[in-house]
Design a protein around this nucleic acid. Structure first.
Length: 462
RNA sequence: GUUCCCGUCGUCUAGUGGGUCAGGACGCCGGCCUUUCAAGCAGGAGACGCCGGUUCAAGUCCGGCCGGGAAUACCA
């Protein structure tokens, strides 16, 4: 059997982190099995769907590298097909017209709730052998309801949650077409999954309750029931449900904040799925390993600190040239002009050990391009009288030394020895003079990247 | 209310048909290294929600409870 999986978002907002993980898993499953990954846009809610949201979803998937093989299919463009299936079901008796008004429905539900019952449609328009239906009201346009089986139960083996069994008595005859003729969600999904020959439905577990209804509809349609895998939700850093106030909930906020695609994919892959003790792995490797058996059934809390660590792992081992290319836009964004300063690859190499994100790296790079303004108190603390003569002499030495990290380092050590100083006594004032900070990479490496001319110009302290 | 789902260190997780000092990772805490901060290296603390039951033996099986979540729409 060829695997056909799909991602079917509603275009009502940006692609958030939970949706991104769902898409990633559905995509990886298809890739793992040499199958087909289908993108379907569920845009039947006219009021909430927007073209901007469609674009945002496409952008997010593109950034993550989740390419689809078929689609995007838009449900709004499939109306004729839905209407055709509804007509078939009406003819076959698996669906029927219902003339109950919304106000009647509301009253019914309220009464049921008052009695402590589960609110559900009472089946008054459901045709049964030997039953006389009410008089058809002239002024009401009917909805179409699905004729759900009465007895027994529907069950499936969920690939992540195991066997789930729900009694048909819990399910009522849901509306599959509104009074205006437009089809509803649970119905469209079934027609689509069936028409698109979906074999694996990997989606959020907020759909668990819809699954038995969909299985019944699929069965009424004579379609094959796909494998279902329901993913638990992702909680925010604070353990609360994800929402707008959590900040970076759109995937596109991650590149914005200086995260690498590989790191975000790796993090998401590992959030709710595992492969033994593996923590850092490539997208390629993930596609080879991914399976439904190792998905956790419980909800997962997003942990920014671990994402930061992972991102840093990727930054640390990145090729400096490639990293430089990634870094450039972040430098420009904080108004650092990269045309005149040191070579970007060398900057990246110098800073990568202490920059978890590209935003951090851009910020840390500033003194390499612009001479820092030096805080007088900070300078006075480190620029001692004992250090001054040594610095003066060092400056002269540096004019002649071969400009490499090793030679610069040797020159500094020689000066320290000659003046009977301890290393920090000269390193700290140099650090402040060069960077304006008391913390930085090693001094010889900074000088090397800065170049002789710029280094010497920063060494005037008198 | 009802139905369904979930419950291992603070966090992500390993554990798959009973026996482990309950393993790894992030974070945290000290140590080493050192030119400050990182990085790196070697350590440490830290968990099976609760109560019963089955069993020689339970994180793993059964029951109940508690806690969290979802669904109960002419939204998706």
């Amino acid at each position: 059997m060829t695997v056909r999986s799909r991602f079917a978002p509603s275009p009502t907002g940006y692609l958030h982190i939970g949706g991104a993980r769902t898409a990633l898993y559905a995509w990886a499953y298809a890739r793992r099995h040499g199958g087909t990954f289908i993108l379907r846009i569920e845009d039947t809610d006219l009021h909430r769907s927007t073209p901007e949201a469609v674009q945002a979803i496409l952008d997010g998937m593109h950034w993550l590298g989740l390419d689809h093989d078929e689609g995007p299919f838009y449900q709004m463009q499939r109306m004729p097909r839905y209407k055709e299936v509804i007509a078939q079901m009406l003819a076959a008796g698996t669906a029927y017209h219902c003339y109950t008004s919304t106000t009647e429905l509301d009253e019914m539900r309220e009464a049921q709730r008052a009695r402590g019952e589960k609110p559900r449609y009472d089946g008054r328009w459901r045709p049964e052998a030997g039953k006389t239906l009410p008089e058809v009201p002239a002024d009401i346009k009917p909805v179409v309801r699905f004729r759900n089986p009465i007895g027994g139960s529907v069950s499936w083996i969920d690939a992540v949650k195991g066997r789930i069994d729900i009694a048909n008595a819990e399910l009522d005859d849901l509306i599959i077409a509104r009074a205006d003729g437009t089809p509803t969600y649970n119905f469209c999904v079934c027609v689509d999954d069936s028409d698109m020959k979906i074999t694996h439905v990997i989606r959020g577990d907020d759909h668990v309750n819809n699954t038995p209804r969909q299985i019944n509809i699929l069965a009424a349609l004579g379609a094959t029931i796909p494998v279902y895998a329901h993913l638990s939700m992702i909680l925010g850093d604070d353990g609360q449900k994800l929402s707008k106030r959590h900040g970076a909930v759109s995937v596109m906020d991650y590149p914005e904040k200086g995260y690498l695609r590989e790191a975000v994919v790796n993090y998401l892959a590992r959030l709710g799925w595992s492969h033994g003790d593996a923590e850092v792995f490539s997208i390629q490797q993930f596609c080879e390993w991914f399976d439904l058996d190792h998905i956790t059934p419980s909800a997962a809390q997003f942990n920014t600190e671990k994402l930061n660590w992972l991102n840093h792992e990727y930054i640390k081992k990145a090729d400096p040239t490639a990293l430089a290319k990634l870094l450039k836009p972040y430098l420009e964004k904080v108004s650092i002009h990269v045309t005149t300063g040191p070579e970007l690859a060398r900057v990246a190499e110098l800073l990568r050990d202490r920059a978890p994100t590209l935003v951090d790296m851009a910020e840390a790079a500033r003194y390499l391009f612009v001479a820092p303004t030096i805080d007088a108190t900070l300078l006075n603390t480190h620029l001692t009288d004992a250090a001054k003569p040594a610095l003066v002499e060092l400056k002269e030495t540096l004019k002649l030394v071969a400009w490499s990290k090793a030679d610069i380092g040797a020159a500094i050590k020689a000066t320290v020895g000659k003046h009977a100083l301890k290393m920090p006594q000269i390193m700290m004032p140099l650090r402040v003079l060069l960077t304006g900070q008391s913390q930085s990479p090693s001094i010889d490496a900074i000088m090397d990247v800065l170049g002789r001319e710029e280094t010497l110009s920063r060494l005037d302290f008198a």
